[in-house]
Structures are given as structure tokens and as C-alpha cells.
């Protein structure tokens, strides 16, 4: 069977990568791109020799859609897909507010569609190896620390109305999702130090969190937009898990070649498999097998609750309990 997948909104920087992966792969066909901004949508469609379609037309032919809109528009796009009975893979974070995320979960579950969010780290070979080693060698977890420091993305990512916030909104969930996945525990409390200090933008670029998991284990995270534009890659994902009998950690910037040329200067080039490939393959398989993608919208909604607590902590200057 060939799974028909469409893209709803081409606003997100990942649209191009997903469209590329949906084209020329066995078992899947990119059946079109819809966008509230028809010019943007057409440009994205043309680039991948796909059809630009009106949303209803696309939903009529698609088995699944990838939602690549700004965060604030996720709800609207996902609800339309759910009404049409089309499965969904939505960009992260699921929504700017926990309440909004909850409405998305309800819409998906009421419609009975399969729905998940884009959490490519769950397909990273490093993260998968760390998960295996964590299960094998860490009985008693004592401390978790990670970094997800990136370049400032610009565009709608710095528009509070469209993104819902800055670095806290953008760079908290990747590691949060991995840690939840590894440990099976939720974050119960968040302390946040945030600020706008590196860029002339209306949202925060400093995002340093000190959280607590259900069993009291500390989990700290630097998810700041603190890598310069001139840095050799988009950013890093590092994680260290410390247990009483050992420690496990990875650093995505380690698995790269250093490539130098006249045009781009020095760049790091990942040499392991593209984790977006795993993400898209999983979604296509989920649609075909009538199951949810690896990270479900219900899980993603809990992650938005942590983001909300981080903003509350930053405002109040104290640790804040996460309300799920």
C-alpha cells in the first residue's frame, strides 16, 4: 500500500526536510501541500514537484498530514485534519499553552485518528543507544543534565503571538521528551532562569532550567539560543544520566565530520543516519498500521505543561509545580 501524506502549512523550517523525505520513498506519496499563505505553500510544493492544494482537497486525498505551521496555528490545522479523519504528525511543541494542547488531544481522540508530534531525537542513534544503556546499566537514577543550545531561528519563532514564546517554548521539549521516554517519569517542578540577552528579539533567548522528576531526581537543561549564526552547526543535543552504578551520556556534535570549503567555511556534517528519516518512516508506518506515532499528542501535551511551569517560574522567581 502507498500511504498518501500531505503537508499542512509550510511555515516551519523543517517543512523542506520532511517534504524531501516524503518524496521518492517507497510506500509513501507526497500528495500535496496546503497553506494559509498560498504563495509560501506554492513555493514549497514547486520545490518538491508536489501539488499545491486547498486544505479540504488535500484532506480529502491524504491518509496522513504533517503539520508544519507556527505553534499557535497547530490547533486549527490539527482540528481540521481530525474532522476529516486524517492522521496527524504535528511539529513541536504541540501548542503554546497546556489548555490548547489539551484541546488538540481531545480533538484527535474524539475523532479517533492516530496523532503524534515531531520528536526526531527518539530516532537518533545516539539517543537510542543511550536508552539501551540506560536500561541496562542505570538502576538508580540520581541526576540528569542536558543541553539543547541552538542558533536563534528568527522568523515567526521570535513572534510571541505565533510561537507562544522564545527559547523556552522552542528548546525545552526535545530533551524533556527523551528523559520522559527513558525514565517513564514526569517532571513535577521547574525552576527557570530566562532572559533576552543575546539578540534584539521580543522573546527570551536564555533558557536554563532546573527541574525535578517524580521521584525527586534533578533534571537540569540549558536550552538557550546561544550558538552564534557562524557556529559550525545548528546546535547541540547533549545528555548525561548519572546513576549510582554508572553514567551514560551523548553529544550529538560528536558524531560529525568537519568539512571545510570556500563557500561555507568550516561546517560539521553529521555522518550517522538522519533522524528525520526515522521520524517520517515511523509516521508513514503508523498510518499504514493504524497506530499512533512514537511520541503521541497526549505525551506532547504533558510537555507543554512543563513549558508553562517554566514561564511561571521565570515570572515568579521560584520553583513552580507543574500542573498537568
Amino acid at each position: 500500500m502507498t500511504v498518501a501524506v500531505g503537508i499542512l502549512s509550510a511555515a516551519h523550517v523543517h517543512t523542506d526536510a520532511y517534504a524531501g523525505l516524503l518524496t521518492g520513498r517507497e510506500g509513501v506519496e507526497l500528495v500535496g501541500i496546503a497553506d494559509g499563505d498560498s504563495e509560501r505553500g506554492r513555493a514549497a510544493a514547486d520545490k518538491h514537484d508536489a501539488d499545491y492544494r486547498e486544505t479540504d482537497d488535500l484532506l480529502a486525498v491524504a491518509d496522513g498530514v504533517v503539520v508544519c505551521s507556527p505553534n499557535a496555528a497547530h490547533e486549527e490545522w490539527v482540528e481540521r485534519a481530525a474532522e476529516a479523519g486524517v492522521d496527524v504528525l504535528c511539529e513541536k511543541p504541540l501548542a503554546p499553552t497546556h489548555e490548547g494542547a489539551g484541546r488538540i488531544v481531545d480533538a484527535c481522540e474524539d475523532a479517533g485518528i492516530n496523532a503524534g508530534v515531531c520528536m526526531p531525537m527518539r530516532f537518533s542513534p545516539l539517543a537510542l543507544e543511550a536508552r539501551d544503556r540506560y536500561e541496562e546499566s542505570i538502576d538508580e537514577l540520581r541526576f540528569v543534565s542536558g543541553t539543547n543550545r541552538g542558533q536563534m531561528p528568527g522568523g515567526w519563532f521570535t513572534d510571541a503571538d505565533l510561537a507562544g514564546g522564545g527559547a523556552v517554548m522552542d528548546h525545552t521539549v526535545h530533551l524533556l521528551d527523551l528523559v520522559r521516554w527513558y525514565t517513564g517519569m514526569e517532571v513535577t517542578e521547574v525552576y527557570a532562569e530566562t532572559g533576552t540577552q543575546m539578540h534584539d528579539i521580543p522573546v527570551e533567548d536564555v533558557n536554563v532550567l532546573s527541574m525535578r522528576l517524580e521521584d525527586g531526581t534533578p533534571f537540569t537543561l540549558d536550552g538557550s539560543w546561544s550558538r552564534p549564526d557562524e557556529w559550525t552547526t545548528w546546535g547541540d543535543v547533549t545528555l548525561d544520566l548519572l546513576g549510582t552504578e554508572g553514567s551514560v551520556g551523548f553529544d550529538t556534535t560528536g558524531a560529525q565530520l568537519q568539512h571545510t570549503n570556500e563557500e561555507d567555511g568550516v561546517q560539521w556534517v553529521p555522518y550517522r543516519s538522519d533522524m528525520n528519516e526515522g521520524l517520517i518512516d515511523d509516521f508513514v508506518a503508523a498510518v499504514a498500521e493504524d497506530r499512533n506515532p512514537r511520541t503521541t499528542v497526549r505525551e506532547a501535551a504533558t510537555e507543554v505543561a512543563v513549558i508553562e511551569a517554566a514561564y511561571a517560574s521565570s515570572e515568579r522567581g521560584e520553583p513552580v509545580a507543574v500542573e498537568y
Binding site: 541526576f143 543534565s145 536554563v208 532546573s210 534533578p218 537540569t220 540549558d222 548519572l242
Partner: peptide, 15 residues
């Protein structure tokens, strides 16, 4: 094992 978040008077943050 400890992690300290520091806020400096300059506004800088450290982990």
C-alpha cells in the same frame, strides 16, 4: 553531584 544556576548582577546566567 550538584548543578547550580546562578544569576549574576549583570543579568548573565550560568549553569
Amino acid at each position: 553531584h550538584a548543578v547550580v544556576l546562578l544569576r549574576f548582577e549583570s543579568g548573565a546566567v550560568a549553569h
